[in-house]
Design a protein around this nucleic acid. Structure first.
Lengths: 345, 345
DNA sequence: TGTTATAATGTTAGCGCTAACATAATGTTA
DNA sequence: TAACATTATGTTAGCGCTAACATTATAACA
């Protein structure tokens, strides 16, 4: 006897036998109940319940060459920014038949490549990847993938397939313009992690400072350490030690900005009078802090939502009217940069 | 002609043909290279590269009745607490052959049940679920699952299979004991979301207050709204309006605690002199804030790590020496509860 | 040198499901 | 009621891979 024993779980044949029908009828009853008469459907559902039958998704995927899996690759699980987008993706997929396959590239391009390769092996229905800075190999893999691909969080003029995001360069520029307009003179930059998106923010920021005649390379402080609240505090302390005349900073992200605020409070420097602070992303806490913190609001939730909507549309055979969606950003001006006019030095 | 056309991607037979070997040899070369001679292995690897072959994981899972998928179900994607555990799980699984299948139950027990059902359909190698408050049906599904199951973040004396976490009741009690010891008199509780874990924290907290003769039900303020920094500010404002004599609060979690701090600063109430604040989880920001915030430190990363280690051990045929791992917690006493002795009213 | 253990490769069948076609049951129309 | 459309169900094969056994090449040993 040379039988293989399977997983031991009930199969569709067990259900079919118990319900007195063929397997294909069970298959149909489960996938599209309208194709099966009430009479049989009831019998089948009973059998399913009795046997506690759960379809074997791998078998289904193999037979139908469709997996209903959407691969999502983000660079960080702990960064709230991606968490919001991820939540939107899950929310938007909640109803449908799709499953999310989530990968964490940890900001390492080679890891991303590995993940893309693995995910593509599952014949995903679609792929969502963060950013536009894939390796050439990753790009090629995704370009040749037989499924819709959406790059999220960023935009460029050269999408692999589709894109939803906003311009980090412009976001950084807006922050710079704001600080210049508010009358700050010695304007610095605090940047942690410094992934490609952060770099573009910094470049936009620098450009704004140059245009405003306020660019001082000595005030740009970056590190590859990952961002945190405490790091924001440390960096502003260091930068002030080097340049006590510093009077404003644009922080790489909101954690850093909050840390910078705490750092100032600890040092007895008043925000916004002696120090203007602006962050990036506008996490929920920015409005709630005291003083409230100015930030560049980005709609991460919307990004995830639109990405999934685009994917659904394409899978439904529609042609999206635009391949690139720029969701923009919005400067939320709050107390941390509300410098009284009179105080301008 | 009645051929089905497959996904169009190269299959293992294409590789076998090109390398001039049988499919099983290719299969072996990819899964366990030591079982194939150098000579053939090289040929096979060449063919794989030439054809850009990626194994079809569904076919593999079906044939081997092993999926190498570990199902993980968390109640929130945006809550940092789970993000840390999740990151640990991904980190710990990084090397091995395992894939994570992540589900978001949004704190809804029925959704969790649905997810468990779906995940079990993929014949996972293991399951990790958050908490111990599953529905009866979910419990039954998991108890009958033919794979290791680890409940994380919490502990009870009645595990489905294995458990890694800590006692929320004891954590809450420790917070209460701390505030009583510090000499605070009118001690309140701010609770958002109030999922079962938060409830146990509150119960432990109440017990400590009762023991210390400081329990006042009028000072316990809860809401089902999801927690946030701004909510922490609103709740403490409301509670102070109701009871201006309030002099300390234990917050449900750290976001709430930070919000409470900002709320006090806004109202001109000094922390810790006029108001003691203690949070739960000890997120990174707690140590960096000003004043720094006392919290109950929990090792979420370690929880994820140990969960995966237990799973790996079981899958390797080992019997874990303990089924329940209590990782405990640690009160981090910081400025926000450092009330000068003299100030006690 | 023949016998036996070991390593390397191949053959066959089947994992559980669904696509594609086939057939039977029912409804519709003139 | 014949002729046809429509709906409901069944039969068969195969998705791409690997378990289990079979065979052949190579090493080890008396």
């Amino acid at each position: 006897m040379r039988k293989r024993k399977g997983a031991g779980r009930p199969t569709i044949s067990d259900v079919a036998e118990r319900a007195g029908v063929s397997t294909i009828t069970v298959s149909r009853a489960l996938r599209d109940p309208s194709k099966v008469s009430d009479h049989l459907r009831r019998k089948i559902n009973d059998a399913v319940r009795k046997l506690n039958y759960v379809p074997h998704s791998h078998a289904s995927a193999l037979a139908s060459t469709r997996s209903n899996v959407i691969g999502v690759i983000v660079p960080s699980l702990t960064n709230n920014v991606f968490a919001d987008t991820l939540r939107a993706i899950y929310d938007e997929l909640y109803q449908g038949p799709f499953q999310v396959q989530l990968g964490n590239s940890r900001y390492v391009a080679k890891d991303e490549e590995r993940l893309v390769r693995t995910f593509l092996g599952q014949g995903p229905s679609a792929m969502i990847v963060a950013g536009v800075d894939q390796t050439d190999a990753t790009r090629e893999l995704l370009e040749n993938a037989e499924c819709p691909v959406v790059q999220v969080m960023d935009i460029s003029d050269d999408p692999i397939d589709m894109m939803v995001g906003f311009s980090h360069f412009e976001g950084g520029r807006a922050a710079g313009v704001h600080l210049v307009q508010k009358g700050y003179k010695r304007i610095g930059f605090l940047g942690a992690r410094m992934d490609p998106r952060s770099h573009r923010r910094m470049e936009g920021f620098k450009e704004a400072l140059r245009s405003g005649g306020r660019y001082d390379p000595d005030l740009m402080m970056t590190t590859t350490d990952s961002s945190s609240v405490s790091l924001g505090g440390h960096l502003i302390e260091q930068l002030r030690k080097r340049r006590p005349d510093l009077d404003a900073v644009f922080c790489n992200n909101d954690d850093m900005a909050l840390g910078a605020l705490f750092g100032c409070q600890k040092a007895g420097i008043s925000v916004p009078d002696e120090m203007g602070i602006i962050g990036f992303n506008d996490l929920e806490m920015m409005a709630a802090s005291y003083p409230s913190l100015t930030s560049i609001r980005t709609d991460r939730y919307q990004i995830g939502k639109r990405a999934v909507q685009m994917i659904k549309a394409v899978l439904d055979g529609e042609t999206p009217e635009q391949k690139i969606i720029d969701l923009g950003f919005e400067l939320q001006c709050r107390e941390s940069t509300m410098r009284p006019k009179s105080k301008a030095r």
